[in-house]
Design a protein around this nucleic acid. Structure first.
Lengths: 152, 152, 152, 152
DNA sequence: TTTT
DNA sequence: TTTT
């Protein structure tokens, strides 16, 4: 009886940060920019464009796709949910970080643009990921994963 | 070339905070809860339900509807965009707050549940808002608003 | 590199049609109404409200939830994708039907409204479905389903 | 109390059909393809990819942008609503056509790909539309349009 | 820190 | 701070 859904299209701000946990689960983090267009209000006030930065978090198969194909500048479609984490800073103050946990990702733009991820563009490793079951997102992924004791 | 869209269904955490700016523009703020269901992982780990709180911001016509019909506990559909504001706290540290700027809102549940907002349920003030032009969301609203020099 | 996503909130037009296939897979079909609000154009023309009917199709766990809890009049959130099927009518003309294949469903409104599904509201069968793994939607469902040779 | 929302990312099937009504309102129609990925079920059945064709309808400012920048093959983000029209064919049978009425559109891919629409890429006609007020989508558009007596 |  |  609850829905928490985010849909973003934007550009990746820097190469993803990739980590593998002890259980071999992959996690990717990167910033994604969306930009509102500039416009002029009816009263004639000019509103400049405004960029919003989103902290994207990917798990498992989607994180592995990010490792292979996502780079600074990549245009992405991201579908996921909002999650705000709290943490305590060095001054012992509770602070909050809002992140987007992705459960779907699509690489946009044409195939031959998505190179740039040079180490992966090899003959038997198509530049455009096929995203078939073994590397797919959370759905199929969770079905393939015998060890899955993480809280997300 | 950018999309920043959020879709939420949840329950309002407390009565909206309503303000009228000098130019008579109405602004409403309230927290909305969405709750992930509890589940058990394939490894048998129990994950409890988790509630996410979203800071909702409404402007103009939508804020006025909130003033009339939204109360603590109301179930709402919200469509909007993510916006992170930065501010400087008393320790002079830059902090960030993520908010949802709504551009569409729907009151869910059946008509006669949406009472509770007792002061407005008067005879010529139907409990279920008709949401026709004068009080509608951003679209019609912007068309009706001669003074509109705010940056959103 | 493709997205096909539909989000609907509306009311069920009649009790779901439930079928079980030979392999015991459950399928549910029902119409869902969404209604555009009436409004007046800037030129003063009155546009009446307009109801759109959507053919909803649910599979497996979601269909079983529909069997238990969805009835004529139920207010639902549906997330899914558009699919147009062609078929040949008795005059041998190819015709098309557009359906919404749901991959998420939420029952809206308050708990005690969702009764009406009288046969299921028994003591050990909570009216509000818990939607935990065994009866959940496509995600977990596909993980639990050893026989799964259907084309969706 | 109703939501009817569609989000599509796909490729345009052929150059848009552009018409101007008597009141100078522009309407654009074109097919958009979204393609589900091929996959293999847990039972080992291969499901081929499947393409879905959507009939996109744009009005006013969005239709004019389509006239200038959208061509066969263009990758687009479309946000809109589902609408099913009925009509009577030559055999006097009522038939139905489902269309997507767009209220937002974004051209995807990088700037220099979006040429192809060669006749419009002239010096004072930037290839990447700025989409500022005068040519924007339904929102601002309705604000700028003094004659607006159409039923959408 | 992206992109236009 | 909601709701189930």
């Amino acid at each position: 009886m609850s829905v928490n859904k985010v849909i973003l299209i934007g550009n990746v701000g820097k190469d993803p940060d990739i980590r593998y946990l002890d259980n071999n689960v992959c996690v990717a983090n990167f910033p994604l920019a969306t930009t509102d267009r500039a416009y002029t209000t009816r009263a004639g006030v000019q509103i400049p464009e405004k960029t919003e930065w989103h902290n994207i978090v990917l798990w498992r198969g989607l994180a592995e796709i990010a490792e292979k194909y996502v780079r600074k500048g990549t245009q992405l479609y991201i579908e996921g949910k909002i999650r705000t984490r709290s943490w305590v800073d060095q001054s012992n103050i509770t602070r909050y970080t809002t992140e987007i946990y992705a459960d779907n990702m699509e690489l946009l733009g044409r195939k031959n643009e998505q190179i740039g991820a040079s180490p992966v563009s090899q003959i038997d490793n198509p530049v455009q990921p096929s995203l078939t079951s073994p590397v797919q997102g959370s759905n199929v992924d969770s079905g393939n994963n015998d060890i899955d004791d993480l809280p997300f």
